[in-house]
Computed example of a mutant assay.
Amino acid sequence: MPKGRKILILSAAMGAGHDGVAAELSRRLAAEGVEAEVVDILRLLPLGLGSSLRRGYGWMIRSAPWLYAAIYKIFFVSERAPTTSPLTLLAAGPLRELVRLRAPEAVVSTFHLAAQVTGHLRERDRLAVPSVVIVTDFAAHRLWLHPGNDRYLCGDAVTALVVAEATGRPAFCHAPLVRPEFLKPAADIARARERLGIQEGDRPVLVSAGAWGVGRVEETARVLAASGRYLPVVLCGRSDRLLRRLRDAGTGLALGWCDDMADVFAAAYAMVDNAAGLTCREAFAAGVPVVSYRPIAGHGRDGALAMARSGLSVYARNAAELIGALDRLDGTPERARMIARGAALFSAASAESLLGRPPG
């Protein structure tokens, strides 16, 4: 991408995945001399509505997943849902003003609400600069899709085909946006295991609970520990409550927020995931096979199923299937195939290079 450009990146602090993608894109653009500003689209909503939405979503995922599943079914995937939501209209004016003040050459969205807002404005000729959407989910639900956007970038070829067909807009496959340390061979696996407290002969299996520490991960840890073959290492994100509960229970290891996840992956036999988000793409980069189990409602379940259909992961429907899937990954051709498919995602063009591609 030519130097001297200015890009506005729209994200949302719903978990850490959208912000993680936005931050890595910003870092890469800055390395190329491009000025990149990341803005939380929820902060553009009036009267603190964005903060209320974030809290409400967090509560539903933790305490009422059935409610989020119903909302997801009605508004995220149903063809009968309104084409334009009130949130889109509320954010449209503030975003248009922000673009006027910042004068970027393009707007890039890494969150579905932002994609709806930019598409809405572009379709009505109220956004003068191109709009690019980076789809961060493995299953692109309806709210990612708006024909007003100029271009879509997707982390896998299947999603790109689905998006192009649904929107009629160009959709390109890009290499997942993960930090560079995940793509480097581990410097010292033995040291990484020692630092985490993993003993000789242990087979550590990471259990990802996302940034918010959600899902039925305590149950997953108990299943792994009860097998007698795997050491659960639960990634509790920023949930101090989950971290305390797991440490009090003494079921395997429990880790708080980790800034050195590449080292954690280096020590892992496999990862059990429940959200199909950025952590899965980091695992693919690090060569760690992924098994989906007890995914969170809505986009988590759809994403886990999409990953499994693509051969990137295994979807375990119950405890027996979970242990069976992990058993099959012990130095087998299945493990090698899964790791190879995950690594192949990174052979696509970089997202930052696709931002500079001519329209069309």
Rank of each mutant, 00 (worst) to 15 (best):
4 G>C: 06
5 R>V: 09
6 K>G: 03
8 L>C: 11
11 S>Y: 03
14 M>G: 02
15 G>N: 10
15 G>V: 09
16 A>R: 14
20 G>K: 02
21 V>D: 03
24 E>L: 10
24 E>Q: 15
25 L>T: 07
27 R>A: 15
32 E>K: 15
39 V>G: 05
45 L>E: 11
46 P>W: 12
47 L>W: 14
47 L>F: 14
60 M>A: 12
63 S>G: 02
64 A>L: 12
66 W>F: 12
68 Y>V: 01
75 F>A: 15
77 V>Q: 09
81 A>C: 10
89 L>S: 05
90 L>Q: 10
100 R>K: 14
102 R>H: 13
109 S>F: 07
110 T>H: 11
115 A>D: 06
115 A>L: 10
116 Q>N: 07
121 L>I: 06
123 E>T: 05
124 R>L: 11
126 R>A: 13
129 V>Q: 09
129 V>P: 08
138 F>M: 12
138 F>Y: 15
139 A>R: 11
142 R>F: 05
143 L>I: 08
146 H>V: 00
152 Y>S: 01
155 G>C: 10
164 A>E: 14
168 G>N: 09
169 R>L: 04
170 P>G: 04
174 H>D: 04
174 H>A: 12
174 H>F: 15
175 A>Q: 03
178 V>L: 10
181 E>Y: 07
182 F>H: 13
185 P>F: 02
186 A>N: 06
194 E>Y: 08
200 E>W: 04
202 D>L: 03
204 P>A: 09
205 V>N: 02
214 V>K: 07
218 E>M: 12
226 A>V: 08
227 S>P: 03
229 R>Q: 13
230 Y>F: 15
232 P>K: 12
235 L>D: 02
243 L>E: 07
243 L>C: 05
245 R>V: 08
246 L>F: 01
248 D>L: 14
251 T>V: 15
258 C>R: 15
259 D>L: 11
266 A>F: 06
268 A>S: 14
269 Y>V: 01
276 A>C: 12
277 G>K: 09
280 C>R: 04
283 A>D: 03
283 A>H: 01
286 A>K: 07
292 S>H: 15
294 R>S: 10
295 P>K: 09
295 P>E: 10
296 I>S: 01
296 I>A: 00
304 A>E: 00
313 S>P: 04
316 A>I: 03
316 A>S: 06
317 R>Q: 08
317 R>S: 08
319 A>T: 12
321 E>G: 07
322 L>P: 00
326 L>W: 11
327 D>Q: 08
328 R>D: 14
328 R>Q: 14
329 L>I: 05
334 E>H: 12
339 I>L: 10
341 R>A: 13
342 G>L: 05
344 A>F: 04
345 L>T: 01
346 F>K: 04
356 G>E: 13
357 R>N: 00
